[in-house]
Amino acid sequence: MKNITTLTDAIAEHIHDGDTVALEGFTHLIPFAAGHEIIRQQRRDLRLVRMTPDVIYDQMIGAGCARGLIFSWGGNPGVGSLHRFREAVDVGYPHPLAIEEHSHAGMSVRYTAGASGLPFGTMRGYLGTDITKHTATIRTIECPFTGEPLAAVAALNPDVGIIHAQQADKDGNVGFWGIQGVQKEAILASTRAIVTVEEVVDSFDSRVRVVLPSWVLSAVAVVPRGAHPSYTHGYYDRDNAYYRAWDEISRDRATFADWVRTHILETRDFADHLAMLDSSMAQV
């Protein structure tokens, strides 16, 4: 269990200003608690990586943690725009944000190359688009066997990869199930890896499909409901009302700043934040 720690200590030890950091989770198991802790500890100048920078990265970008973003789709799923992300791109508030954009397929090939220890990956992609004109990490190469033109995309090797999972066992191995996204590749592509889990169990649930051994994980922290407002299959559902409410909270700089201060900066940890949300819901 030597890798099991608190989220506060895991972020303090492993995330440094200026790091390239990937928080993954494709609609499911989004590591919100870890994102909040990065905001709480006021990390700066991060180059954030994520296929779908949704509300979690809107919060981190708006809170001033990021100077760069590598991504493939940025929106609030089913709701609309990310207002903090858009204001950073449009007018450089609170900081200018250097963006590097790919497609989903391109990002997944980049992570896979990174996890495989290769300098790049290949794919049939990006043909006939303007994406290649603005993204330096895409080149066209010729297949050495058939001559077919292929896209080459540079490997992604973040300094830190962060995911949320259902369970860790008592030895610090991590297991998850349901929609698995690109989490395994993101962890194995990264130099350091942090995982938050719902609980520690004696032995894994029979539904576990992906297992990451303890010795590839720098830190594992137990954070119940750590993916809220996204969901954890088998534990809790997506909080759709939160995603809808985010549109209004994030639209205005002052409203957003007030939310970050009361819900993140002035809370002790994610459990404290969740207790605040639960009590405000009870008042409604």
């Binding site: 494709f26 609609t27 499911h28 296929m51 799923p77 089913g78 989903h104 397929a105 997944s108 090939v109 992570y111 896979t112 794919m123 049939r124 992609g125 349901g178 929609i179 698995q180 996204g181 690109v182 395994k184 590749e185 499909r209 996204s230 969901y231 299959h233 559902d237 997506r238 759709n240």
Partner: peptide, 28 residues
């Protein structure tokens, strides 16, 4: 479903695979 990651999609699927796999083995 409300989102592409809706839990019911995983529960009722014949197979659930990773994002790299869906784009490489199935689409590409």
């Amino acid at each position: 479903p409300l989102s592409i990651g809706d839990g019911e999609l995983a529960e009722t699927a014949v197979a659930v695979v990773s994002v790299p796999e869906i784009f490489a083995y199935w689409l590409q």
